[in-house]
């Protein structure tokens, strides 16, 4: 895979139907402005879009971020909604900020576009990590362009359901286009809904994912892919190979080294960072190697 390649002049595959989101124009970020405050206090942002008023032409359900539009997000207990954490723990905010900074630095140095968030199994906090990374990237000061959050799990469709409701596009197999690019209530973050199982973007066609990411990379400088669980869903292994960089999500006390090795496979060199969820308090917050 060619990481960070410019948009391919070749025409896109026929089965890939990407429609630019008909959302409102994103205000041009002021590069070089004063430093961005931590997400722990995002309410101070003045350029935040009006919450819960963002609607898409597809009638998407609004995200429940009214109370604290700039807060970090967590997956609700039923796994169907994203809930805001208006006052996240400082260590959590620091962790995501550092990971965001690392991603921005690497993208700037290597002209990268796509980054996959992978985990071994479900329940390790991968979706929440992907959303929060997209949120942090979307609020990054000096960002150019929008951030695309990709729901790569055609089976669970968690992100699609969270942002679009149970009747997410493509879930019913009706004539709605899929996957689709839709706007979200998050700052500068768009969502690409999950493909359907009989779509071209399946485990049987990794080249389609590569071509899609190449095409989207021309429009989005930052693509965050919520990959399926690698050891549960074969599509996770495909997406793991298709993205340019990887952020691994593990859960302290539950994940094992063996599972981490199996999760990364031959792509360990592409791992940009690791988010260790549920780490014991007082533990190390980062470790460079």
């Amino acid at each position: 895979m060619s990481a960070g390649a410019p948009p391919d002049p070749d025409p896109a595959p026929e089965h890939v139907l990407v429609t630019p989101p008909p959302v409102e124009a994103e205000p041009v970020p002021d590069v070089g402005a004063r430093p961005e405050p931590a997400p722990a206090a995002p309410s101070s942002r003045e350029d935040a879009p009006p919450p819960s008023t963002v609607s898409t032409p597809y009638g998407l359900a609004p995200v429940d971020v009214d109370a604290a539009p700039a807060a970090l997000l967590a997956v609700s207990a039923d796994g169907a909604r994203l809930v805001a954490t208006p006052q996240p723990e400082a260590r959590t905010a620091d962790g995501y900020l550092r990971m965001t900074a690392r991603i921005l630095l690497e993208f700037q140095k290597q002209d990268l576009r796509s980054i996959g968030v992978v985990s071994a199994y479900e329940g390790e906090g991968r979706t929440a990590a992907a959303v929060n990374l997209a949120v942090c990237l979307g609020r990054a000061k000096g960002r150019v362009g929008r951030v695309l959050l990709v729901d790569g799990d055609a089976r669970r469709r968690a992100l699609s359901k969270m942002f679009c409701g149970p009747d997410a596009p493509g879930a019913d197999g009706e004539g709605r286009p899929h996957p689709m690019l839709i706007g979200t209530a998050l700052d500068g973050v768009d969502l690409m809904t999950a493909p359907v199982l009989d779509d071209g973007l399946t485990v049987t066609s990794p080249a389609a994912w590569i071509a899609t990411f190449r095409e989207l990379g021309a429009m989005y400088p930052h693509i965050v892919v919520d990959c399926p669980a690698v050891l549960e869903n074969p599509e996770g292994m495909v997406l793991r190979e298709c993205v340019q960089q990887i952020v691994l999500v593990a859960r302290a006390g539950a994940s094992t080294r063996t599972l981490v090795r199996k999760t990364l496979g031959q792509t360990a060199a592409k791992v940009l960072g690791v988010i260790l969820n549920g780490a014991p308090p007082g533990g190390a917050t980062e470790a460079w190697r």
Partner: peptide, 10 residues
């Protein structure tokens, strides 16, 4: 890789 440890959100 950068390894960050965060509490479980939610």
């Amino acid at each position: 890789a950068l390894v960050v440890s965060v509490p479980m959100l939610g």
